[in-house]
Simulated assay, not measured.
Amino acid sequence: MSLTGASMLKSRFDISKSRTEAEPEEIEEENTEAKEEEVKEEEVSVEDKIVYPERRLNRSEVSVRLSLLGKTAEGDGYTYLKAACTGMSLTNISAIKSFQHLQFVDVSDNCLDLENLQAVTELPFLVLIHADKNLLYSAALKRMKYMQVIIMNNNFLTSVEDVYQPELSTLEVGYNKIKKIEFAKKMPNIKCLDFRHNLVRDIESIDFPNLDSLYLAGNEITSLVGIERLVNLRILHVRKNPIKLLNGFNSELKKLQYINLRNCKVATLRQVKKLRVLPALETLILKGCPYMGGTGEENPVVAEEEEPAELRIEVLASLPRLKRLNKGVVTPEERAEAKELLKQWIEEGENDEEEMVEEKEDGSIID
């Protein structure tokens, strides 16, 4: 039993339908500040509430929330594969164990702690668990044979060290309080890690050679050193992190096609040029960075401004293989201008000395 393709790499999908390959540009967080404020309000309300009235799920409630008709795991008949028991203030979901053919379970927006969520581990064919907005301080579900996708956004997780599922391919734990991405046991099948809006400071402990997509927007990352180990990485989304230096990239990252550095702290063309080593890079998002005239902060007004045309040409001259820069597809006219600028640089002899001086004055460490 396996979930193939990029359709299972993110939780923003309808699992009753197939989804085309994810386009990271389209899933950038909107109204980030409002979302963060919402999370803070939820934290206060959860922590202030002392007693949670018992609310047990019953079988009849599950029955009317079944969907996604499909073949049984044994292939000898048809059954409903998905149950969505969301927003019901549930504290106990033991009744779900009666539905042994379930492969997808969504119990988001309830009052479940880890002990009560463990009921889903008794579903022998479970592939995906979606448990956003519950009372989870740990994601350590008991080992399951087929579990591939765990989604636990907006909980109270501080670590993922105790997470272990042998077939896990996607772990999404955004809007928690996780400081380090570190696991006690190796999970070789991991393809997608999503730790948006946590407290992560670096990626040096991430060692997943098969990782395809890494989403780390809204953390406290200052360096991308360690990225060189992720030799199969295709998507890197690090929007809104205090990243100034683009160290760590090398030519072994042959599949890296998309990098989102929106509202980071990249301030010079010299740093952008470090991405030349990436042979497959097609899309680069730099909007909001100081180099593009931004401040490195989320700002709805700035977000609507067009980046200076001359800066687009500089980036395209530095990275001629790009097909898309920020939200704009590279035009033939821009490519021609970039080619002329590159020719001019070669004739004059490229010199990053001025940028190096600027970085030293800014206190950045030059490699």
Score class of each variant (00 low, 15 high):
M1N: 07
K17N: 10
T20D: 13
E25F: 07
E26G: 06
E28H: 11
E29V: 14
E29W: 05
E30F: 04
E30C: 05
N31V: 01
E38W: 08
V46Y: 10
I50G: 00
E54C: 02
L69R: 15
D76G: 04
L81E: 03
S89N: 14
N92C: 11
S94A: 15
F104C: 03
V105L: 11
S108L: 04
Q118V: 08
P124S: 05
A131R: 01
S138M: 07
K142H: 11
K142E: 14
K142A: 11
S159V: 09
L168M: 12
I178Q: 03
K179Y: 00
C192Y: 01
R196D: 11
E204L: 07
S205G: 00
L214R: 01
I221H: 04
V225N: 07
L230P: 01
V231H: 06
P242H: 06
I243L: 08
L253T: 00
L256H: 02
Q257V: 00
Y258E: 03
R262G: 05
R262A: 09
R270Y: 12
K274R: 15
E282V: 03
G294C: 08
N299I: 08
V301N: 09
E304S: 12
A309R: 12
V315R: 01
K323Q: 14
K323N: 09
E333I: 13
E334V: 06
M356F: 09
V357Q: 13
D362I: 00
